[in-house]
């Protein structure tokens, strides 16, 4: 059985910035455990001599010329924003009061 703990899922949710509810954490702890158990066998099959493949079709040196292209207008940039001040995106305070 997997060693996924509730605390681990809470930690992962923090890293992933998702405010999971306690019920979700409970459920995910079980599910993640099952999933990890079923896929952990990947580590059995490939030895140190097998190189990793990150791209299905190998390519190298794909570069862009250093030439300025079309930019978004400020209006376009801000159009989808939940909140802005007319020129910049607005977000809540970064530090809490206790910080």
């Amino acid at each position: 059985m997997s060693e996924i703990t509730r605390e681990q899922v809470e930690h992962l949710a923090g890293l992933a910035r998702i405010a999971l509810t306690p019920a979700e954490i409970d459920r995910l702890t079980g599910e993640l455990g099952q999933i990890v158990d079923s896929i952990a066998k990947v580590s059995e099959v490939a030895g140190a001599d097998v190189p990793a493949t990150s791209h299905p079709i190998p390519l190298v040196n794909v570069f862009r010329d250093d030439v300025v292209g079309e930019t978004l207008t400020q209006e376009q940039a801000l159009a989808g924003a939940p909140e802005h001040d007319g020129t910049r995106f607005k977000v809540s305070a970064i530090l809490g009061e206790e910080q």
Partner: peptide, 12 residues
């Protein structure tokens, strides 16, 4: 300063 700020604005 970041401490005590009410909100922040982002320019990318």
């Amino acid at each position: 300063r970041i401490q005590g700020a009410e909100y922040s604005l982002v320019d990318y």
